[in-house]
Structure formats: structure tokens, C-alpha cells
């Protein structure tokens, strides 16, 4: 598979460029449109949480929303990664895995730009950074998670027409199960009361929890409950990536018939 991807690296590159170009084409503001979404979300949640008399830590919320946005965008785009390129899939033979890969890579480029903006913001509000050297590892892990799920979702959408609706429901639940707009400290005391000490493991079995916690530790030097929990999340991410690749390679031969 990696040989395939390497052999078709030109195609991968062009598709990544195409994805980025199409997103920014016909819009003068270009990249800033994609920032506008998270900024709105941040404003809405900040105001809402403030009204509800929650303690809000704005840098933590901003970090959470921006990284979640990368994940959510990948999931949303993955619906169209194969279906939106139906004419390519039925016309030419090339490793199909390139299509979702290019989509996730394009979103990664977008995310890296968002991280630059985030860093500028964090410099302005003068937070103290953690071990920045770990940032590439975290980004790679999130990339692996996004790719694995994108492979699964994009191929499911070929076979099942209601994938979109199922996905949007799952994503909404996932959003609230992940400490995006709240901190782990806000929920864990109550959760352990209900479920015992295994609550931590359950919480971090959600790969996005560990990834978000890791980002916050790196950007904001926020503390976290244990390195083994982060390792659990990262492990789940890479396993999902592996499953995604295996499933995708197995079903992709049938794309031509279904489209």
C-alpha cells in the first residue's frame, strides 16, 4: 500500500492541491473562511458557557475547538472522498486509497495553518508552552485517526445511502463525549463517583480525549491524569488507522460496481 502511494505520489500531490484550491476558489478571503467557522463556534460557546456560569478557560476552549474542527472537517469531507469522485473511480484505475488520503492531507495543511494562527493567539495572551517537541507526534496521531475513520466512512458512504445522517448523529454525541468545551477536571470527579476508577479508562478509550489533552498539555502546559491514559488514546488512534486501511483495501474492489 505504501509502495502504491509512493508510486502515485504525483497524483496524491495534485489531488491535495486540488482539494485545497477548490475550497479556496471563488472566495477572496480564502483560508480565513475556514477560520471563521471555529471563531464563530468559540464565540458561541464562550458566551453560552459564560451565561451558564461555567468557568471558562478561553485558551483551552480555543485549542479544543480548533483541533476538534480538524477532526470534524475530515469526517464531513470523507463522505464525499469517494462519492464525490465517482467519475474518477469509474473511469480510471489507480489506488483508491489516494482519494481519502488526499482529502485528509488537504485538511491537515489547513489545520497546520490554523495552528499558526492559534500560536499567534497564544503568544498574545501569553500562556506558557509545554513540551513543544511532542507536537509533531500528536499531529501525526490525529492524522492517523482521521485517516482511519475517513477510510471507513468514505467506503461506507458508497454502500449505504444514510451514512451521512448516521455520521452527523454520531459526531454530535462524540463532540460532547470529548472534553472540547469543558475540561477533564470538570467531569471526572462525578464520573468516577458513578463508574469507579475505570471511568478514566473509558474516557480515554475515546482517542480524541487523549489527543486533545495532549494538545493542551503542549500548548498550555495543562496537567493531565496520567501518561498511560494518553498512551491508551494514541494506541486506539493507530489501531483505528490500521483497521481503516485493512477494511478499505478489502472493500475498494467493489467501488466500481456500486458507483
Amino acid at each position: 500500500m505504501f509502495k502504491d502511494l509512493y508510486k502515485h505520489r504525483e497524483l496524491l500531490l495534485i489531488l491535495v492541491q486540488r482539494n485545497i484550491k477548490i475550497r479556496y476558489k471563488n472566495s477572496a478571503l480564502g483560508f480565513f473562511w475556514t477560520l471563521l467557522g471555529p471563531i464563530f463556534l468559540i464565540c458561541i460557546y464562550a458566551i453560552f458557557l459564560h451565561l451558564m456560569r461555567f468557568n471558562i478557560n478561553l485558551p483551552s476552549l480555543v485549542t479544543g475547538i480548533i483541533t476538534w474542527q480538524f477532526f470534524a472537517m475530515c469526517m464531513g469531507d470523507s463522505l464525499h472522498a469517494i462519492m464525490g469522485n465517482a467519475s474518477l473511480v469509474t473511469k480510471a484505475s489507480f489506488p483508491r486509497i489516494i482519494l481519502p488520503s488526499a482529502m485528509v492531507l488537504a485538511n491537515t495543511v489547513n489545520f497546520l495553518l490554523s495552528i499558526l494562527v492559534l500560536l499567534i493567539y497564544l503568544l498574545i495572551v501569553k500562556t506558557c508552552f509545554g513540551v513543544m517537541i511532542l507536537l509533531p507526534l500528536i499531529i501525526m496521531t490525529q492524522f492517523a485517526l482521521c485517516l482511519g475513520l475517513a477510510l471507513i466512512v468514505s467506503s461506507m458512504n458508497v454502500f449505504f445511502r444514510d451514512t451521512e445522517h448516521v455520521l452527523s448523529t454520531i459526531m454530535l454525541a462524540w463532540f460532547f463525549l470529548t472534553p472540547v468545551i469543558y475540561g477533564i477536571g470538570d467531569v471526572m470527579p462525578r464520573a468516577t463517583e458513578l463508574l469507579g476508577p475505570s471511568a478514566y479508562y473509558l474516557f480515554f478509550a475515546n482517542p480524541m480525549t487523549g489527543i486533545l489533552t495532549a494538545y493542551r498539555s503542549v500548548f498550555l502546559s495543562e496537567g493531565f491524569p496520567g501518561i498511560h491514559l494518553i498512551a491508551l488514546s494514541f494506541g486506539v488512534s493507530w489501531i483505528i488507522c490500521l483497521i481503516g486501511v485493512v477494511v478499505f483495501q478489502k472493500v475498494q474492489v467493489r467501488f466500481g460496481d456500486e458507483l
Binding site: E10, L11, L13, I14, L15, K21, L88, T90, K91, A92
Partner: peptide, 30 residues
């Protein structure tokens, strides 16, 4: 293969960009 002429073209990209894309699908570099 010309199973459908220009089937892989993306409407928002220019002709030139689509040519590069089509070439890459058939394994040619830019």
C-alpha cells in the same frame, strides 16, 4: 482509457489543471 471523455475533470479547475490531474492519474509527472 476513454470510458467517458473527460469524466474525471473537475468543473471548478481550469483546463490546464485538469490536464495535470488526468496525466497524474495515468501515472505521468507534472
Amino acid at each position: 482509457c476513454l470510458l467517458e471523455l473527460g469524466a474525471g475533470f473537475h468543473p471548478d479547475l481550469t483546463g490546464r489543471e485538469n490536464v495535470y490531474l488526468a496525466g497524474a492519474i495515468m501515472g505521468l509527472s507534472q
